[in-house]
Structures are given as C-alpha cells and as structure tokens.
C-alpha cells in the first residue's frame, strides 16, 4: 500500500513526489515512457524565477535527481485505468494507494491528415530544434499560431533557406516579441487565414496543399512541415471515474481536486487558464500537500 501514487513524471508529477517524499510518505511514481514530460523539448527555459536560463533536459534531470535522492520509487509502467477505492492498474501490475495525483500532462496535437504518421521523420516533424539541422538551405513550413510555432519559425530561419509560417487565423496567439522579430526576418513568409489540408509526396513529403479563407487551394513545395499546433490531453482512460471537460482536460475544483475524493490533478492535464512550467510545479506542490493533509 502506497500513501501516494503519482501518474506521470513530468514537472508536476516529480514536484508532487518531492513534496510527498519530504513529508516521509511512501510514494510511487508511474511513467509510461521517460521522465521529464514536455519540458525536455524546450531548448532553453528563460522564464523560471531565479534561474537565468537552463535547458529543458537539465531542468528535468535536476528535478529527477532531487526526487531520486529522497528515495523516489519510479516505475516505467503505463497506467491503463483507475478503479474505485484508489486502485491503479498498469500494463503490468495493480497498486493500491491512499491518494492519487494525476499528472498525465498533454501530448503534441497532430494535424490529423492522411500520411501524417507515415511521413514522420520523412518531412513531418514535431520538434524543430531536433530536426531543423537536417533541412539546411531547404524550404520548410511551420504550421501553428502560438509561442512554439513562432519560436520554431525563428529558430529555423537561421538554418534553412525559407520558412513559411502558416496559421489559420489572422493574428498569432504567441508573444508579440517573437512576432516582431519574425517580421524583421527576411526569409520568413507569413501565410495567414490558411489551413494545411493535404500532404503530398511519394517516399517523403514533397509539398502541401493549403486552403485560404475564400476556399482557394494552392500548393507549396517544401522539404519539411513542422507541426506546432499545440497540445492535447490524454485522459479518456479515466473518464469512468473522473470528470473531464469537453476538450478532455480533467476538471479541477479548488485548484487540484477532482470530483473524486482522494484523487488530485496537477499540471497541464487539468482545466486551467495558464499552462506553464511554473504553474505545473505549483500544481504539484499543492496536490501533494492537499493529499497529505486530507489523507485518512
């Protein structure tokens, strides 16, 4: 029997572990793939208070080591269900806890177009900093309108010949700072009010079809499409017990409580206005603290 089982080893989950371990609780962290969460994709974090800059991987490693040194038990198992009375079912085992923190985060949203999976690594990328270097002096496109899309376009503009930045609205959601920088970058071309509707090519991606707001379709030859259209939660497997909102985020009451007593939610997986690293670790802190306080 564990005091606390935490599902997900991103910043929210690992912070919850940190707080619970420091309170001498018996903690199990379950992670399907690899600790660190989405932050490992961040080239540089520059908005975390008191840290000038740090890479996402270093941040994840530091946090992991910190919890590990307190005796964190982390198992690489995929949680497939939560049952009544706080039973956590994984692909390998069943565990019983006094309280559960769901810190399942989000995953990258796909366009949902035919051949998108087939072209992964062959002209479709979800990580500009990982794959940009393979497209030196080539023509590429970024699709999206948030900070990630703007940062990706800026990053790629230094490597490739030309970047098309495609966004379905007339204005970007991302910070104005990035937009201003992009406007001054000569090899970035904005394509606004347009959607990517088709991926063309044989063995690899060769061009995309885009449709503008009048319904006119045009074709752009590119070597790679970098997809940065945001994140989506993956909480459907908990829907039998836990209330989700219409987008699939776990409904949070009073910060980190779910509809189920003794089950908490922390980080990007929950309903909230601001999904940032700072708010994820804040959630982890609150969830662990409340779980311990309300434990019976």
């Amino acid at each position: 029997m564990y005091d606390l089982i935490i599902v997900g080893a991103g910043p929210a989950g690992l912070t919850a572990a940190l707080y619970a371990l420091r309170a001498n609780k018996k903690v199990l962290v379950l992670e399907a793939k690899c600790y660190g969460g989405q932050i490992i994709n961040a080239n540089k974090i520059e908005n975390y208070p008191a840290i000038n800059d740090i890479s996402g991987v270093d941040f994840a490693n530091n946090l992991y080591e910190q919890a590990k040194n307190l005796g964190m038990d982390l198992k690489y198992e995929e949680v497939i269900a939560i049952e009544e009375d706080k039973v956590v079912v994984t692909n390998k085992n069943k565990y019983q806890a006094k309280a559960i923190v769901l810190a399942t985060g989000t995953e990258k949203r796909k366009l949902g177009l035919a051949k998108e999976d087939e072209y992964l690594g062959k002209g479709i990328s979800y990580c500009a900093t990982c794959d940009g270097h393979f497209y030196k002096n080539k023509i590429v496109a970024v699709v999206g309108g948030g900070n990630t899309a703007l940062e990706d376009a800026l990053y790629l503009s230094k490597i490739v010949e030309r970047v098309y930045l495609i966004h379905r609205r007339s204005e970007f959601r991302g910070e104005k700072k990035y937009y201003d920088l992009l406007r001054e970058t000569s090899n970035v071309t904005f394509i606004l009010n347009a959607e990517v509707i088709k991926l063309n090519g044989s063995d690899q991606l060769e061009s995309i079809d885009i449709r503008d707001k009048d319904g006119d379709i045009s074709n752009i030859a590119i070597s790679c499409l970098f997809v940065a259209i945001g994140q989506k939660p993956a909480n459907d497997k908990f829907a039998n017990l836990i209330d989700l909102d219409e987008d699939g985020y776990i409904k949070a009451y009073d910060d980190v409580h779910t509809n189920k007593k003794g089950i908490y939610v922390a980080g990007d997986a929950r309903t909230k206005e601001v999904r940032q690293l700072t708010t994820a670790v804040a959630d982890g802190t609150i969830a662990a603290t409340m779980a311990i306080r309300e434990m019976r």
Binding site: C34, Y35, G36, I40, N41, A42, N43, S55, G56, V57, A60, C127, T129, C130, H133
Partner: peptide
C-alpha cells in the same frame, strides 16, 4: 546529436 533534448533523454 548534442543539441537534441529527446536524444539526451
């Protein structure tokens, strides 16, 4: 590559 976060993980 050294500059790739997921690679380091």
């Amino acid at each position: 590559a050294d500059w790739c976060g997921p690679c380091r993980m």
